[in-house]
Design a protein around this nucleic acid. Structure first.
Lengths: 220, 220
DNA sequence: CAAATAATCAATAAATCAATTGAATAAAAC
DNA sequence: GTTTTATTCAATTGATTTATTGATTATTTG
């Protein structure tokens, strides 16, 4: 007896439901940076341990994450690179279409690009600039995430330590700052600070998430 | 005041929730073929008119579909091509990871590839074969969907009329049948029939959905 | 303008989902 | 072997989601 199409869609919809919760998306974005144990994920997402655990199991049932035991910790990670593409595409579609999304993005971007409206750099522009050695690339994420993998040639400049690194940065060529992805505020903070100090700076807005989703290599 | 990341994820999760229902996915897949009024969509998905309408409005709020009034009908369509990519990617991830999905797919494929296990043809294989003029391509979807756009060079052979078209088909070269996408059973039915009658036949399993998602052209 | 058609709205009840709490496991440290 | 730590499980409650029903709104037809 043939399987009804509806049965297949019902199974497929499990995946959609797994993506249908803001906390789970936050967990996934954190996992997009690097694998992590439950406690860290809970802390980063503002969830109780028990609640985070349940959300993670929900994600696991949907096949989006896998878990392995390491000592007494349970380390979760994204199942594979396609999950990244899924997240990126979801964000892309949302940004173009959801009115509310645009409103929020507007608020997010309003305060740093004010005055001098510098377009964020696209991945393609960045790749070309890097090939030509034309820019200094700054990874402004926390050091742990930098160490788990960063764009080739990037310096780590966690936002908290950026101020003390200023003297090491060039004033005669463009600086490009990036962080996790579109929703990560670090690169905005960094760009504002650097601009105030007279550096030429732009943001690679899409960040490491899009870079990986495009299948480009990272280094450790 | 900066927008919290969580606010953004909450908005984004609306999109996920919209994809988190089997009936809505069925509606989307139908819309992936061609735009359609509520009544048709309801019929095709086995939903009451009122229920279909509500699901469609859910999809509209999420920005996945748009609607326009045509006379007394309300015609829905996918917002843009990226929605297709989203659906395809969702299916891809699901097929690889959801155990239950694999089980169902197994059942679906069990009865036609039995005995002679012919691998479905990939898009790349199909493209090469078409360039060389090496195959006859059959679109086995209903004629209305064929007319809304089909692969270049494809003949329309709706499954109901396939039998009466057999004499026009070549026996000395391979036939490739395709329909909507992975979940569409027409190409299985067609392949089984043709194989029984002694034709050389394979299926382009991913179907028109993947073709469009890859940005390749259709003709009317 | 009345009747018919296509779709939406509003209200309800059943089902599912989410956060909290406290108890239960499983592994490591003592 | 008891204690500590990290996580999961189970039960509860409140919030969302879904399908159904019947009423309501637009638009066309007669």
């Amino acid at each position: 007896m043939p399987v009804s199409r509806q049965e297949l869609f019902d199974v497929l919809s499990q995946l959609g439901r797994a993506l249908g919760n803001g906390h789970r998306l936050a967990l996934l974005e954190h996992l997009a940076q690097k694998e992590a144990p439950v406690e860290e994920l809970a802390g980063a997402s503002g969830l109780s341990i028990a609640n985070a655990s349940q959300h993670l199991q929900h994600l696991r049932r949907a096949g989006l994450v896998t878990a392995r035991r390491d000592g007494r910790q349970m380390v979760y990670r994204l199942t594979d690179e396609r999950i990244l593409r899924l997240l990126t595409l979801l964000q892309e579609v949302a940004e173009t279409h959801l009115a509310e999304m645009e409103r929020l993005m507007g608020r997010l971007f309003a305060d740093d690009d004010a005055g001098e409206t510098l377009e964020p750099m696209t991945r393609v522009e960045l790749q070309r600039a890097l090939e030509q050695g034309a820019v200094t690339l700054l990874d402004v994420r926390p050091n742990a995430e930098y160490q788990a993998g960063h764009l080739p040639g990037a310096l780590n400049a966690p936002i908290a330590e950026l101020e003390s690194m200023l003297s090491a940065l060039p004033r005669d060529r463009e600086i490009v700052a990036y962080c996790r992805g579109v929703y990560c505020a670090f690169s905005h903070d960094a760009a504002r600070l650097l601009r105030e100090r007279g550096f030429q700076v732009r943001r690679y807005q899409a960040g490491i998430l899009e870079w990986r989703a495009a299948g480009l290599p990272l280094v450790d």
